[in-house]
């Protein structure tokens, strides 16, 4: 992904950017913010960046088997497509549904172009010896084990399981993201969970399963 020009950053201020109606960060829907950005509103872009980048990055990391560098590129590319689509955004289209779909497609393209990476980079902060550090390490190892197991799933099963059980989407929305029927979503999720459970069954004790 191309590096952006020296950035003015999300906090740039411009006296010519005054808005007749200030946006409420919490009240505005993603769709309203995209429409506002399409009309040239810089504040809407900042809010969308803060809201959507974590989702896009998270979903890409999971789809790409933990490859954070690739996920970084995918998230930037997906957001770039959002900025380009904003002026012609259809009001009825849900932004998050669209974003998940674009991220998944970009990830699948990359996975098909290259060997799927199963390397897991260190996640989170190093242990600091503070109370709770051991518990955090256990959580981190569980998350890493889950990433590894997800990476071994077929792409569509991985996508369905991640959207359902990690992103918390309902089956109808997953069906919309993936462009399939609800029954197909249920089938993919069930098969994915079965494969995940088989992969993680042996790691229960190792990862402190019995303590939970």
């Amino acid at each position: 992904m191309r590096p952006a020009a020296p950035t003015a950053g999300p906090n740039r201020t411009d006296p010519h950017e005054s808005m007749p109606m200030p946006l409420d960060e919490n009240a505005e829907s993603d769709e309203a913010l995209v429409a506002a950005y399409g009309r040239g509103d810089a504040a809407a872009a900042r809010m969308l960046t803060m809201r959507l980048v974590p989702r896009a990055f998270r979903h890409a990391v999971r789809m790409l088997g933990g490859d954070r560098a690739e996920a970084d590129d995918v998230a930037q590319e997906a957001m770039l497509r959002l900025w380009r689509s904003a002026p012609e955004w259809r009001p009825e289209a849900r932004v998050t549904t669209w974003l998940y779909r674009v991220v998944a497609n970009l990830c699948i393209d990359r996975l098909r172009r290259s060997t799927r990476s199963t390397g897991i980079e260190a996640a989170g902060d190093p242990a600091d010896g503070a109370p709770g550090a051991v518990a955090r390490l256990v959580e981190r190892d569980r998350a890493a084990a889950l990433e590894t197991a997800l990476a071994a799933l077929p792409e569509r099963q991985c996508e369905a399981v991640v959207l359902r059980h990690l992103e918390g989407l309902a089956n109808p929305e997953i069906a919309e993201v993936m462009g399939i029927g609800i029954e197909a979503v249920e089938s993919l999720t069930a098969r994915g969970k079965r494969a995940l459970a088989a992969a993680l069954r042996g790691r229960r004790e190792e990862l402190g399963y019995d303590e939970s």
Partner: peptide, 20 residues
């Protein structure tokens, strides 16, 4: 354990904001 997911690096926010 996996629900929170990895956090994007600060540089990604800056790149996305610059694109926007």
């Amino acid at each position: 354990a996996g629900r929170d997911g990895p956090r994007p690096p600060e540089t990604l926010y800056n790149l996305v904001a610059a694109d926007a």
